[in-house]
Amino acid sequence: MARVLVGVKRVIDYAVKIRVKPDKTGVVTDGVKHSMNPFDEIAVEEAVRMKEKKLASEIIAVSCGPTQAQDVIRTALAMGVDKGIHVEVSGAEYETLQPIHVSKILAKLTEKEKADMIIVGKQAIDDDSNQTAQMTAAALDWPQATFASKIENGDKEITVTREVDGGLETIKCKLPAVISADLRLNEPRYATLPNIMKAKKKPITKMTPKDLGVDVSPRITVVSVEDPPVRQAGAILPDVDALVGKLKEGGHI
């Protein structure tokens, strides 16, 4: 049975309309609703389902970030994860924390925890990088199953259906392996109140990148963060004829 590590990130809630800071250094995060990255919820759900099917023995949720990152670890624990690890990174270091750093942290923890499967979301909806799974797999020299929409567990391998540009593709990966979850992998469960209460008793270990020997010095400099160009207000047309007229005018037909 696999020991599964899941990576969870605390991000601004997907429904929030973000605001760029006036000094163009980033986006406003203070006082803004945060929650678990939607793709990570799917990763957690998949791990929990593996445990329910007796394919996984223990699930460990990891989050790298400031103190509040513990909130998303608690959410994962309430969904059925066994224990949490909070790798504390805050302030300026968190501003420039990138998938390269997170992947090194995950790789170290994987060795430490003797995990043999890692599931993370395919991308975080804040930086939209889509890199962590691939980089973690490389760091461990494990196979990678990215953009997974279906996972079938074998004894020594997994068969994964991937969402690719033209449709779907199927691959077989030897275990241990790293998986990145796509939206259609599953429908995450809601944590029930009793489970949220139980989750408060589950352990969260705290450590720092330094404890793991991971250097988080910045690889990028953010030059600016700005609002995207605003589209000019359009017109509401009275009927289909008016629309046909506009399309002709624009040379579309």
Partner: peptide
């Protein structure tokens, strides 16, 4: 930055200890 490029480049970058830039 297609499914192919997104799956491949970060793996290459990690092997070269480089932080990749997406999309």
């Amino acid at each position: 930055a297609s499914a192919f490029g997104k799956a491949l480049l970060p793996r290459v970058a990690a092997k070269l200890d480089v932080s990749p830039v997406s999309d």
